[in-house]
Design a protein around this nucleic acid. Structure first.
Lengths: 210, 210
DNA sequence: ACCTGAACACCGTTCAAGT
DNA sequence: ACCTGAACACCGTTCAAGT
Protein backbone atom coordinates (compact mmCIF):
# COMPACT_ATOMS: atom_id res chain seq x y z
CA UNK A 1 0.00 0.00 0.00
CA UNK A 2 2.12 2.91 -1.28
CA UNK A 3 1.88 6.03 0.83
CA UNK A 4 2.88 9.50 -0.36
CA UNK A 5 6.52 10.35 0.39
CA UNK A 6 7.01 12.26 3.62
CA UNK A 7 9.82 14.39 2.22
CA UNK A 8 11.18 15.48 -1.15
CA UNK A 9 14.48 16.73 -2.55
CA UNK A 10 13.41 20.39 -2.48
CA UNK A 11 12.16 19.99 1.08
CA UNK A 12 15.49 18.48 2.09
CA UNK A 13 17.50 21.26 0.47
CA UNK A 14 15.29 24.03 1.85
CA UNK A 15 15.69 22.62 5.31
CA UNK A 16 19.44 22.31 4.75
CA UNK A 17 19.77 26.02 3.98
CA UNK A 18 17.56 26.91 6.93
CA UNK A 19 19.65 24.71 9.20
CA UNK A 20 22.83 26.36 7.96
CA UNK A 21 21.46 29.84 8.58
CA UNK A 22 20.00 29.05 11.99
CA UNK A 23 22.52 26.66 13.51
CA UNK A 24 25.69 26.98 11.45
CA UNK A 25 27.68 24.54 9.43
CA UNK A 26 28.46 22.20 12.33
CA UNK A 27 24.76 21.47 12.75
CA UNK A 28 24.31 20.67 9.08
CA UNK A 29 24.77 16.94 9.63
CA UNK A 30 22.77 14.17 8.05
CA UNK A 31 21.34 13.10 11.39
CA UNK A 32 20.44 16.61 12.54
CA UNK A 33 18.96 17.45 9.17
CA UNK A 34 16.88 14.27 9.20
CA UNK A 35 15.70 15.04 12.72
CA UNK A 36 14.53 18.50 11.67
CA UNK A 37 12.58 16.85 8.85
CA UNK A 38 10.95 14.34 11.20
CA UNK A 39 12.66 11.37 9.62
CA UNK A 40 15.73 9.16 10.24
CA UNK A 41 19.03 9.85 8.55
CA UNK A 42 19.18 6.89 6.13
CA UNK A 43 16.04 8.06 4.35
CA UNK A 44 17.85 11.20 3.22
CA UNK A 45 19.96 9.07 0.90
CA UNK A 46 16.94 8.67 -1.36
CA UNK A 47 17.19 12.37 -2.18
CA UNK A 48 20.88 13.29 -1.92
CA UNK A 49 24.00 11.32 -2.79
CA UNK A 50 25.80 12.05 0.48
CA UNK A 51 26.69 14.93 2.78
CA UNK A 52 28.89 16.52 0.15
CA UNK A 53 25.86 16.45 -2.15
CA UNK A 54 23.95 18.48 0.42
CA UNK A 55 26.76 21.04 0.50
CA UNK A 56 26.86 21.28 -3.28
CA UNK A 57 23.13 21.84 -3.42
CA UNK A 58 23.31 24.55 -0.76
CA UNK A 59 26.12 26.31 -2.65
CA UNK A 60 23.97 26.09 -5.76
CA UNK A 61 21.07 27.69 -3.91
CA UNK A 62 23.39 30.50 -2.79
CA UNK A 63 24.63 31.07 -6.33
CA UNK A 64 21.03 31.14 -7.47
CA UNK A 65 20.20 33.73 -4.84
CA UNK A 66 23.21 35.81 -5.90
CA UNK A 67 21.80 36.00 -9.40
CA UNK A 68 18.19 36.43 -8.38
CA UNK A 69 16.31 39.12 -10.26
CA UNK A 70 19.36 40.06 -12.28
CA UNK A 71 19.17 40.89 -15.95
CA UNK A 72 22.15 42.38 -17.78
CA UNK A 73 21.95 46.06 -18.64
CA UNK A 74 24.58 46.40 -21.34
CA UNK A 75 26.79 48.75 -19.32
CA UNK A 76 30.04 47.15 -18.16
CA UNK A 77 30.19 49.27 -15.05
CA UNK A 78 26.63 48.50 -13.99
CA UNK A 79 27.35 44.83 -14.60
CA UNK A 80 30.46 44.61 -12.44
CA UNK A 81 28.98 46.89 -9.82
CA UNK A 82 25.82 44.79 -9.63
CA UNK A 83 27.79 41.57 -9.42
CA UNK A 84 29.83 42.81 -6.47
CA UNK A 85 26.77 44.13 -4.64
CA UNK A 86 24.87 40.90 -5.11
CA UNK A 87 27.76 38.92 -3.62
CA UNK A 88 27.85 41.25 -0.66
CA UNK A 89 24.11 41.27 -0.08
CA UNK A 90 23.75 37.50 -0.37
CA UNK A 91 26.52 36.59 2.03
CA UNK A 92 25.23 39.15 4.50
CA UNK A 93 22.03 37.16 4.48
CA UNK A 94 23.84 33.84 4.81
CA UNK A 95 27.02 34.46 6.78
CA UNK A 96 27.41 30.78 7.61
CA UNK A 97 27.59 30.04 3.91
CA UNK A 98 30.87 31.91 3.60
CA UNK A 99 33.18 29.10 4.73
CA UNK A 100 31.11 26.67 2.71
CA UNK A 101 31.59 28.55 -0.51
CA UNK A 102 35.24 29.14 0.31
CA UNK A 103 36.69 25.73 -0.30
CA UNK A 104 33.86 24.66 -2.54
CA UNK A 105 33.94 27.82 -4.60
CA UNK A 106 31.09 29.26 -6.59
CA UNK A 107 32.10 27.46 -9.74
CA UNK A 108 29.20 25.33 -10.77
CA UNK A 109 27.06 25.19 -13.88
CA UNK A 110 24.89 28.05 -12.73
CA UNK A 111 27.82 30.34 -11.94
CA UNK A 112 29.49 29.58 -15.27
CA UNK A 113 26.39 30.91 -16.98
CA UNK A 114 26.55 34.16 -15.07
CA UNK A 115 30.25 34.59 -15.80
CA UNK A 116 29.59 34.04 -19.46
CA UNK A 117 26.80 36.59 -19.41
CA UNK A 118 28.91 39.27 -17.76
CA UNK A 119 31.84 38.57 -20.08
CA UNK A 120 29.43 38.92 -22.96
CA UNK A 121 28.35 42.37 -21.89
CA UNK A 122 31.96 43.49 -21.68
CA UNK A 123 33.10 42.07 -25.00
CA UNK A 124 29.99 43.43 -26.69
CA UNK A 125 31.03 46.83 -25.34
CA UNK A 126 34.32 46.41 -27.18
CA UNK A 127 36.55 44.96 -24.47
CA UNK A 128 39.31 42.55 -25.42
CA UNK A 129 38.26 39.26 -23.90
CA UNK A 130 41.37 38.97 -21.74
CA UNK A 131 40.72 42.37 -20.23
CA UNK A 132 37.12 41.42 -19.63
CA UNK A 133 38.15 38.21 -17.85
CA UNK A 134 40.61 40.04 -15.67
CA UNK A 135 38.06 42.72 -14.80
CA UNK A 136 35.53 40.10 -13.76
CA UNK A 137 38.06 38.18 -11.66
CA UNK A 138 39.30 41.34 -9.97
CA UNK A 139 35.79 42.45 -9.14
CA UNK A 140 34.91 39.01 -7.83
CA UNK A 141 38.10 38.98 -5.74
CA UNK A 142 37.34 42.30 -4.16
CA UNK A 143 33.70 41.43 -3.56
CA UNK A 144 34.53 38.10 -1.92
CA UNK A 145 37.30 39.49 0.24
CA UNK A 146 35.29 42.50 1.34
CA UNK A 147 32.31 40.30 2.13
CA UNK A 148 34.51 38.07 4.17
CA UNK A 149 36.12 40.89 6.06
CA UNK A 150 32.73 42.42 6.74
CA UNK A 151 30.88 39.26 7.68
CA UNK A 152 33.38 37.13 9.58
CA UNK A 153 32.81 37.09 13.33
CA UNK A 154 35.64 39.35 14.42
CA UNK A 155 36.84 38.92 17.94
CA UNK A 156 35.61 41.84 20.06
CA UNK A 157 38.53 43.92 21.23
CA UNK A 158 38.95 44.43 24.95
CA UNK A 159 40.31 47.63 26.39
CA UNK A 160 43.50 45.77 27.29
CA UNK A 161 43.87 44.76 23.67
CA UNK A 162 43.68 48.40 22.69
CA UNK A 163 45.81 49.81 25.48
CA UNK A 164 49.06 48.64 23.88
CA UNK A 165 47.95 49.45 20.32
CA UNK A 166 47.28 53.18 20.30
CA UNK A 167 46.87 53.70 16.56
CA UNK A 168 44.45 50.81 16.25
CA UNK A 169 42.55 52.23 19.20
CA UNK A 170 42.38 55.63 17.54
CA UNK A 171 41.06 54.07 14.35
CA UNK A 172 38.15 52.62 16.29
CA UNK A 173 37.03 55.81 18.03
CA UNK A 174 33.30 56.08 17.64
CA UNK A 175 33.26 52.80 15.76
CA UNK A 176 32.13 49.33 16.64
CA UNK A 177 34.75 47.66 18.77
CA UNK A 178 35.98 45.25 16.13
CA UNK A 179 38.37 46.04 13.31
CA UNK A 180 36.05 45.16 10.46
CA UNK A 181 34.92 46.43 7.08
CA UNK A 182 31.63 48.36 7.11
CA UNK A 183 29.11 48.68 4.32
CA UNK A 184 30.38 52.21 3.65
CA UNK A 185 33.92 50.88 3.35
CA UNK A 186 32.64 48.29 0.90
CA UNK A 187 30.92 50.91 -1.27
CA UNK A 188 33.95 53.13 -1.31
CA UNK A 189 36.28 50.26 -2.15
CA UNK A 190 34.01 49.13 -4.94
CA UNK A 191 34.05 52.58 -6.53
CA UNK A 192 37.81 52.62 -6.21
CA UNK A 193 38.19 49.22 -7.88
CA UNK A 194 35.79 50.06 -10.71
CA UNK A 195 37.54 53.39 -11.33
CA UNK A 196 40.80 51.47 -11.55
CA UNK A 197 39.28 48.99 -13.98
CA UNK A 198 37.93 51.86 -16.08
CA UNK A 199 41.40 53.37 -16.20
CA UNK A 200 43.48 50.25 -16.75
CA UNK A 201 41.31 47.68 -18.46
CA UNK A 202 38.50 49.41 -20.33
CA UNK A 203 39.05 49.99 -24.04
CA UNK A 204 39.57 53.59 -25.16
CA UNK A 205 36.22 55.26 -25.01
CA UNK A 206 34.84 56.79 -28.16
CA UNK A 207 34.71 60.63 -28.28
CA UNK A 208 30.94 60.57 -28.07
CA UNK A 209 31.06 59.23 -24.54
CA UNK A 210 33.09 62.13 -23.22
CA UNK B 1 59.54 6.93 38.04
CA UNK B 2 58.94 10.00 35.85
CA UNK B 3 59.87 9.53 32.23
CA UNK B 4 60.45 12.42 29.82
CA UNK B 5 57.30 13.48 27.95
CA UNK B 6 56.89 11.83 24.57
CA UNK B 7 55.36 14.93 22.99
CA UNK B 8 55.18 18.69 23.64
CA UNK B 9 52.91 21.55 22.68
CA UNK B 10 55.19 22.76 19.88
CA UNK B 11 55.46 19.21 18.54
CA UNK B 12 51.69 18.89 18.55
CA UNK B 13 51.17 22.18 16.75
CA UNK B 14 53.89 21.52 14.19
CA UNK B 15 52.33 18.18 13.41
CA UNK B 16 48.91 19.84 13.19
CA UNK B 17 50.08 22.26 10.51
CA UNK B 18 51.84 19.46 8.63
CA UNK B 19 48.68 17.36 8.78
CA UNK B 20 46.61 20.25 7.47
CA UNK B 21 48.99 20.82 4.56
CA UNK B 22 49.34 17.16 3.65
CA UNK B 23 45.89 15.73 4.29
CA UNK B 24 43.53 18.68 4.49
CA UNK B 25 41.24 19.95 7.17
CA UNK B 26 39.11 16.81 7.38
CA UNK B 27 42.15 14.81 8.49
CA UNK B 28 43.00 17.30 11.20
CA UNK B 29 41.13 15.33 13.87
CA UNK B 30 42.28 14.66 17.41
CA UNK B 31 42.53 10.95 16.78
CA UNK B 32 44.38 11.24 13.49
CA UNK B 33 46.73 13.86 14.91
CA UNK B 34 47.47 11.66 17.91
CA UNK B 35 48.11 8.71 15.64
CA UNK B 36 50.63 10.71 13.61
CA UNK B 37 52.39 11.58 16.86
CA UNK B 38 52.48 7.95 17.98
CA UNK B 39 50.18 8.51 20.91
CA UNK B 40 46.49 8.11 21.78
CA UNK B 41 44.06 10.99 21.45
CA UNK B 42 43.34 11.70 25.14
CA UNK B 43 46.98 12.57 25.78
CA UNK B 44 46.69 15.56 23.44
CA UNK B 45 44.47 17.24 26.01
CA UNK B 46 47.53 17.84 28.17
CA UNK B 47 48.80 20.26 25.51
CA UNK B 48 45.72 21.77 23.87
CA UNK B 49 42.35 22.70 25.30
CA UNK B 50 40.31 21.00 22.60
CA UNK B 51 40.05 20.70 18.82
CA UNK B 52 39.15 24.36 18.51
CA UNK B 53 42.35 25.14 20.41
CA UNK B 54 44.30 23.28 17.74
CA UNK B 55 42.64 25.36 15.05
CA UNK B 56 43.39 28.58 16.87
CA UNK B 57 47.02 27.64 17.23
CA UNK B 58 47.27 26.75 13.55
CA UNK B 59 45.74 30.09 12.58
CA UNK B 60 48.24 31.77 14.86
CA UNK B 61 51.08 29.94 13.13
CA UNK B 62 49.75 31.13 9.77
CA UNK B 63 49.53 34.73 10.97
CA UNK B 64 53.06 34.40 12.25
CA UNK B 65 54.22 33.14 8.88
CA UNK B 66 52.42 36.01 7.15
CA UNK B 67 54.48 38.47 9.18
CA UNK B 68 57.72 36.55 9.01
CA UNK B 69 60.76 38.63 8.20
CA UNK B 70 58.72 41.80 7.91
CA UNK B 71 59.93 45.10 9.24
CA UNK B 72 58.09 48.32 8.40
CA UNK B 73 59.76 50.61 5.91
CA UNK B 74 58.02 53.90 6.55
CA UNK B 75 56.42 54.11 3.11
CA UNK B 76 52.68 53.60 3.13
CA UNK B 77 52.66 52.07 -0.31
CA UNK B 78 55.43 49.58 0.46
CA UNK B 79 53.58 48.68 3.64
CA UNK B 80 50.23 47.92 2.04
CA UNK B 81 51.88 46.28 -0.95
CA UNK B 82 53.96 44.05 1.29
CA UNK B 83 50.98 43.13 3.42
CA UNK B 84 48.98 42.00 0.40
CA UNK B 85 51.88 40.03 -1.05
CA UNK B 86 52.55 38.26 2.23
CA UNK B 87 48.91 37.18 2.45
CA UNK B 88 49.06 35.85 -1.07
CA UNK B 89 52.37 34.03 -0.65
CA UNK B 90 51.41 32.45 2.66
CA UNK B 91 48.09 31.05 1.55
CA UNK B 92 49.68 29.73 -1.61
CA UNK B 93 51.91 27.70 0.68
CA UNK B 94 48.99 26.59 2.85
CA UNK B 95 45.93 26.38 0.65
CA UNK B 96 44.09 24.17 3.11
CA UNK B 97 44.40 26.91 5.69
CA UNK B 98 42.14 29.19 3.66
CA UNK B 99 38.80 27.83 4.88
CA UNK B 100 40.22 27.62 8.37
CA UNK B 101 41.11 31.28 8.49
CA UNK B 102 37.85 32.18 6.83
CA UNK B 103 35.41 31.67 9.65
CA UNK B 104 38.05 31.98 12.32
CA UNK B 105 39.51 35.14 10.86
CA UNK B 106 43.04 36.43 11.30
CA UNK B 107 42.09 38.54 14.26
CA UNK B 108 44.18 37.39 17.16
CA UNK B 109 46.71 39.09 19.38
CA UNK B 110 49.48 38.71 16.86
CA UNK B 111 47.47 40.12 13.98
CA UNK B 112 46.34 43.09 16.07
CA UNK B 113 49.99 43.98 16.51
CA UNK B 114 50.62 43.95 12.79
CA UNK B 115 47.53 46.06 12.10
CA UNK B 116 48.67 48.57 14.67
CA UNK B 117 52.12 48.70 13.10
CA UNK B 118 50.81 49.31 9.59
CA UNK B 119 48.36 51.93 10.83
CA UNK B 120 51.26 53.59 12.58
CA UNK B 121 53.25 53.89 9.38
CA UNK B 122 50.31 55.52 7.63
CA UNK B 123 49.41 57.98 10.36
CA UNK B 124 53.09 58.87 10.79
CA UNK B 125 53.08 59.69 7.07
CA UNK B 126 50.29 62.16 7.73
CA UNK B 127 47.19 60.08 7.02
CA UNK B 128 44.00 60.76 8.96
CA UNK B 129 43.50 57.66 11.03
CA UNK B 130 40.11 56.86 9.47
CA UNK B 131 41.63 56.93 6.01
CA UNK B 132 44.45 54.72 7.20
CA UNK B 133 42.01 52.19 8.65
CA UNK B 134 39.98 52.11 5.47
CA UNK B 135 43.09 51.69 3.33
CA UNK B 136 44.25 48.75 5.42
CA UNK B 137 40.84 47.08 5.35
CA UNK B 138 40.51 47.56 1.59
CA UNK B 139 43.95 46.13 0.95
CA UNK B 140 43.23 43.20 3.22
CA UNK B 141 39.91 42.61 1.49
CA UNK B 142 41.46 42.55 -1.93
CA UNK B 143 44.36 40.37 -0.82
CA UNK B 144 42.08 37.82 0.86
CA UNK B 145 39.62 37.67 -2.00
CA UNK B 146 42.31 37.41 -4.65
CA UNK B 147 44.09 34.71 -2.69
CA UNK B 148 40.88 32.81 -2.40
CA UNK B 149 40.02 33.12 -6.06
CA UNK B 150 43.53 32.05 -6.99
CA UNK B 151 43.90 29.19 -4.54
CA UNK B 152 40.50 27.58 -4.32
CA UNK B 153 40.23 24.28 -6.17
CA UNK B 154 38.25 25.43 -9.19
CA UNK B 155 36.28 22.79 -10.97
CA UNK B 156 38.02 21.93 -14.24
CA UNK B 157 35.85 22.95 -17.17
CA UNK B 158 34.93 20.27 -19.65
CA UNK B 159 34.52 21.03 -23.33
CA UNK B 160 30.77 20.60 -22.94
CA UNK B 161 30.81 23.25 -20.21
CA UNK B 162 32.48 25.61 -22.65
CA UNK B 163 30.46 24.72 -25.73
CA UNK B 164 27.41 26.66 -24.56
CA UNK B 165 29.41 29.57 -23.09
CA UNK B 166 31.37 31.00 -26.01
CA UNK B 167 32.66 34.14 -24.33
CA UNK B 168 33.91 32.25 -21.31
CA UNK B 169 35.57 29.80 -23.69
CA UNK B 170 37.27 32.64 -25.55
CA UNK B 171 38.54 34.06 -22.27
CA UNK B 172 40.29 30.79 -21.55
CA UNK B 173 42.11 30.42 -24.88
CA UNK B 174 45.69 29.54 -24.13
CA UNK B 175 44.93 29.57 -20.42
CA UNK B 176 44.56 26.88 -17.84
CA UNK B 177 41.15 25.30 -18.15
CA UNK B 178 39.68 26.80 -15.00
CA UNK B 179 38.37 30.32 -14.60
CA UNK B 180 40.75 31.43 -11.88
CA UNK B 181 42.90 34.38 -10.90
CA UNK B 182 46.59 34.05 -11.81
CA UNK B 183 49.57 35.58 -10.08
CA UNK B 184 49.80 38.18 -12.85
CA UNK B 185 46.15 39.08 -12.31
CA UNK B 186 46.89 39.46 -8.62
CA UNK B 187 49.81 41.79 -9.24
CA UNK B 188 47.84 43.92 -11.64
CA UNK B 189 44.86 44.14 -9.32
CA UNK B 190 47.09 45.10 -6.44
CA UNK B 191 48.61 47.96 -8.39
CA UNK B 192 45.12 49.06 -9.35
CA UNK B 193 43.90 49.03 -5.76
CA UNK B 194 46.95 50.86 -4.43
CA UNK B 195 46.65 53.49 -7.16
CA UNK B 196 43.05 53.97 -6.13
CA UNK B 197 44.03 54.30 -2.49
CA UNK B 198 46.71 56.84 -3.43
CA UNK B 199 44.11 58.84 -5.30
CA UNK B 200 41.22 58.60 -2.87
CA UNK B 201 42.61 58.09 0.59
CA UNK B 202 46.16 59.40 0.76
CA UNK B 203 46.58 62.89 2.20
CA UNK B 204 47.53 65.67 -0.22
CA UNK B 205 51.16 65.17 -1.02
CA UNK B 206 53.56 67.98 -0.33
CA UNK B 207 54.98 69.79 -3.39
CA UNK B 208 58.39 68.31 -2.74
CA UNK B 209 57.11 64.85 -3.55
CA UNK B 210 55.99 65.78 -7.03
C1' DA C 1 8.31 3.03 -3.09
C1' DC C 2 9.69 4.85 0.94
C1' DC C 3 11.21 4.60 5.54
C1' DT C 4 13.40 2.30 9.73
C1' DG C 5 16.68 -0.36 12.92
C1' DA C 6 20.76 -2.27 13.38
C1' DA C 7 25.38 -2.18 12.37
C1' DC C 8 30.12 -0.46 11.23
C1' DA C 9 33.77 2.62 11.32
C1' DC C 10 34.63 6.80 12.57
C1' DC C 11 34.71 11.30 15.76
C1' DG C 12 35.56 14.66 20.37
C1' DT C 13 35.96 14.44 25.10
C1' DT C 14 36.01 12.78 30.05
C1' DC C 15 37.76 10.07 33.64
C1' DA C 16 39.54 6.51 36.27
C1' DA C 17 43.40 3.66 36.06
C1' DG C 18 48.14 2.48 35.10
C1' DT C 19 53.37 3.44 35.40
C1' DA D 1 53.72 13.74 35.50
C1' DC D 2 52.29 11.71 31.54
C1' DC D 3 49.89 8.36 28.97
C1' DT D 4 46.24 4.67 28.18
C1' DG D 5 41.63 2.03 27.98
C1' DA D 6 37.14 2.28 28.45
C1' DA D 7 33.18 4.78 28.00
C1' DC D 8 29.68 8.17 26.25
C1' DA D 9 27.46 10.77 22.92
C1' DC D 10 27.91 11.89 18.63
C1' DC D 11 28.81 11.32 13.24
C1' DG D 12 28.31 9.34 7.85
C1' DT D 13 26.89 5.51 5.42
C1' DT D 14 25.25 0.73 4.16
C1' DC D 15 21.95 -2.81 4.10
C1' DA D 16 18.51 -5.90 5.26
C1' DA D 17 14.02 -5.65 6.90
C1' DG D 18 9.46 -3.69 7.47
C1' DT D 19 4.96 -1.66 5.48
Amino acid sequence: MPRPPRISRPAVLDEALRTLDEEGIEALSMRRLAQRLGVTSPSLYKYVRDREGVFEAVVDAIVQEINEGWSPTGSWRAELDGMARRYFRTFRRHPHAVPLVMHRPTRNQRSLDSFDTVLNVLTAAGWPVRNAARAVLLTESYALGATLTAVSPGVPLTSEDLASRPTLAAALIGEHSTFRLTEEDFEHGLKLVLDGIARELAPERSPLEH
